[in-house]
Amino acid sequence: MNRTLTPVLTATAALAATLAVAAALLALGGHSPGAVFAALLRGAFGTWDRFFSFTLVRATPLLLTGLAVALAFKARVWNIGAEGQLHAGALAGVAVAILLPVHSPLLVLPATLAAAAAAGALWAAVPAAMKTRMGVGEVITTLLMNFVAVFLAQFLVQGPLQEPRGVFNQTDEIPLAARLPALLPDTRLHLGFLLGIVIAVALWLYLTRTPGGFRLRAVGASPRAAEVSGRFRAGPVVWLAFLTSGAIAGLAGWIQVAGVTHRMYEGLSPGWGYTAIAVALLARLNPLAVVVTAIVFGALSAGGGAMQREAGVPEVWVRGIEALVILAVLTVDRSWQVLAGGGSRD
């Protein structure tokens, strides 16, 4: 219980510290901090609709990529490639949705989700193979695979997957059968958010309640020790972490298309795969806490939009404040660890 709650409090305290610094900066820049923060809160939580349609919709891709990163990091697999796996998943989902000659949602939805997960896993399989077979560091390989995926997406939406008119660099709209239904009526919140919650709970159960989860955490704590103990080999565990992480990130991409944008285009993601690292670390890699931190980031981003609209704060300021929050979180998190006498590392 403690482990779940601590990250939540970390997030809250960091937010408060950031508010103080940001307020000073905003005042210097000629903006009224009160009005700006009021806009932020209104944008993120002002009405139920804003919370469901804005904050939770924005939190969904961060939730899924955050879970992907948390799982990988838990196994000491430094997957920086969620961004690329997300693109791979989105492309595969769109391709299946557009090319599959079936129009029943009962078939199309599972098929597209499976394709997206498989593509994400495949994208992660390349760095996994390079790590386990050749000992190539995955920080570099997963990062580089991101560029390959982003450029592949650029090429596909200008070429083979481009809308039939061939005018804009985007795919056609996906058929109705491939779209994720709304989770709540009259909101933009879609089934993908629920799927993210289900995956979070499943990962948490897996990590804490199963032998497989124990092995994964053991390898994460010390791959050498796990090997030396002679009970199992680290290789398969690393593979499993890579593939599952990639699959979840792949789902994130397709779910964004199926639930929100309904087509694929260049620049689908504003860097969710990278923000996911902050989301996962802030949650101390605990899948249940990732749900909370993803919502915090979603709220921050939805509130950022309102800061522009209602308080006239330029976008660069908004992003600066978002960055301040991340810094504040890391600072508060670290100081708690020190104050608590070292603290645990998970």
């Binding site: 804005f54 929100v260 504003p270 939009g305 609209r309 330029p314």
Partner: peptide, 22 residues
């Protein structure tokens, strides 16, 4: 007058809705 810089199409919907609601 008011201005918002939006990054992704998901934000386009959100901004249109917010302004219309306001």
């Amino acid at each position: 007058v008011s201005h918002q810089q939006t990054r992704t199409p998901a934000e386009f919907d959100e901004a249109f809705i917010s302004y219309a609601e306001d």
